[in-house]
Structure formats: C-alpha cells, structure tokens
C-alpha cells in the first residue's frame, strides 16, 4: 500500500502532537505532584528557621541561604572566566589543533557525571588544596561543570552577532577589543544572560557534586555576624555548607525527625519553585533586555 503525501503528513503531525502532549503532561504531572505534596508545608517560618534533628517543626533557613550563597560564589568565579574564554573561542582562536583540543575539553568537562566531579573536587580541592568541606571547595567543583557551559553560551552568543554589526564597528575605526566589548557583547548580551540564568538554575539544584565538597552539614550560623572571616558567619566561604538539594537527599535517606517526609516534600517544592523562577526569569530578562538594548518600543 502506498500512502499519499497528505496522509503521511497528517500521521506525522499527529505523532508529533502526541509526543509534545506527552512531554507536557509528564512535566505538568511531575511539577504538580511535587508542589501538591510540599506546598502545604511552606511558611515563612519553614523558610527561615534552622532544621531540627529529632523534633518536629524544623526549617530549611540555613540550607536555603547556603544554596543562594554558593550560587553567587560559583557565578562570581564562572561568569568572568566563562565570558573571557567564550570571547577568546569566538573571536581570537584560530581554527586548528589547539582550538579543537580546547573545544574537546570543554565538551568532555560539561558532560561529566556530577558525582565524578564531586569526587574530583574531594581529591583536588578538599584534600590536595586542603580547603576541607567548604563553600569554596563546593563552588570550585560546580565551576568544573558550569564553566564549560558558560564558555559555550558566550561563544554562541558572540558568534550569533551578525557580521554586519562587527564590520560596522571596525569600519568606524574601533579597535578589535572595543568592537567586541562595545558592539558585539551588547548585541549578544540577552543570549548570554538567558544562558547564564539557566546555568544558575542547574547550579542551584545540584546535589551530587556537593556531597563531598561543600559537605553535608552546616555549623550553627549566627545570622547577625557578617564578618566573612568568623567561623560562624554565614558569609565565611571556608565553612562547610549543606545546600537545599543536599539537605533533601540527606533527610530522605537518613532523616530521623518525625516530620522528615514533610520537610523533604516542602524543601523539594521550594527547590522546584526556585528553579522554575530561574527559567521564567531568564526568559523575561532576555526579552526585556533585548527590547531595552535595541530601544525598540
């Protein structure tokens, strides 16, 4: 039997719609389930108070703070490095063995399983460089797989800038560097920022790479002590820090508080909401910046 093109087209369309529908249902179901289980547990108190080991009523305050602080630390390291390397790859690197090699390294690094990155962090940052379980070691481990992503995002953003824009800059007598920073980067910025926020979402939800680097415990934090060198200060980058994602893993596997299940559900809801916010935020910011930078109303 020979099907007419029209029939084939219709069947193919139906199949694609079916898969698209399936993915949406799956996503909605997953998010809905996690939110449904956890959202009843959310309260201001839950988000700000410290966890309890044996009693009910513990919160996730320090973990939430740790996650955010670790994110900031990681981004402080990866954004400048990643943008610099991305610019190099897009504009300065000559096609050849060396460039291909860098590209290979970037690809391999970004596809490493995060538990392996965590073990690498344990060996190198925690043990060899003697950082012990610390935010800094965690941030460095996250850098290992976030940096390649940042490089790729920047490179793609810069390469996406139309050649006419670059030539317009050069033809005005701008140096190559000024053309890159003042003409091409602004055009690429929405792409780069969107990608960066998506990467941030990934960092925020990461657990495996942090188990053996940032650690699975936090010291009692004194939220009135903002001296980054004090051991009980939340800002001390050399203290161990359990993040939200690690906390969920931990109470799920070894939590003994009576309300451990609810706490895990609540914390999962917080995690998912935050990651969703990162995703939506990146879209919104990308659109906003594009409109703003192009001054188009």
């Amino acid at each position: 039997m020979k099907l007419s093109n029209k029939t084939v087209d219709r069947i193919a369309t139906a199949v694609f719609y079916f898969f698209a529908f399936l993915i949406i249902v799956l996503l909605a179901g997953l998010i809905g389930f996690i939110l449904f289980r956890g959202i009843g547990h959310l309260s201001f108190d839950f988000l700000t108070s410290p966890p309890e080991t044996f009693k009910t009523g513990g919160g996730i305050g320090p973990q939430l703070f740790n996650s955010l602080f670790l994110l900031v630390l990681t981004m402080l390291i990866t954004v400048p490095l990643g943008i610099g390397a991305g610019i190099y790859m897009a504009e300065y690197s000559k096609p050849g063995k060396f460039t291909d090699f860098i590209r290979l390294v970037v690809e391999v690094l970004s596809s490493f399983p995060s538990i392996v990155v965590g073990l690498f962090g344990l060996l190198v940052f925690v043990n060899y460089f003697d950082l012990e379980f610390s935010l800094l070691a965690g941030a460095l481990a996250l850098t290992v797989f976030n940096l390649p992503l940042m490089v790729r995002i920047t490179e793609q953003g810069i390469r996406g800038v139309p050649r006419e824009q670059k030539e317009a800059g050069l033809a005005l007598g701008l140096t190559r560097w000024k053309t890159i920073t003042k003409v091409m980067l602004p055009v690429a910025l929405p792409t780069i920022l969107t990608g960066t926020i998506l990467a941030a979402g990934r960092v925020f939800g990461e657990a495996a790479a942090l188990l053996f680097t940032a650690g699975m415990s936090s010291p009692r934090l004194d939220f009135t002590d903002w001296n980054p060198f004090s051991p009980v200060s939340p800002l001390n980058p050399l203290r161990p820090a359990e993040t939200l994602a690690v906390h969920i893993w931990k109470i799920n596997s070894e939590g003994i508080a009576p309300d451990a299940a609810q706490i895990a559900a609540g914390a999962s809801a917080v995690l998912i909401i935050t990651v969703l916010l990162f995703n939506l935020g990146s879209r919104w910011l990308g659109r906003y910046l594009y409109r703003k930078l192009t001054a188009s109303r």
Binding site: A168, A171, G173, V187, L293
Partner: peptide, 19 residues
C-alpha cells in the same frame, strides 16, 4: 584604526546598531 577613521565605509545592507 586611524586609517579606518579617515576612510569610512557604508555597507550594502543598512546595518545600524540596535540602539
């Protein structure tokens, strides 16, 4: 750069900056 300041260029496709 000095040369290109003295010898300006206009391209086939209008290419204003998005500003």
């Amino acid at each position: 750069e000095t040369l290109r300041k003295r010898v300006g260029m206009v391209f086939q496709q209008p290419n204003p900056f998005p500003k």
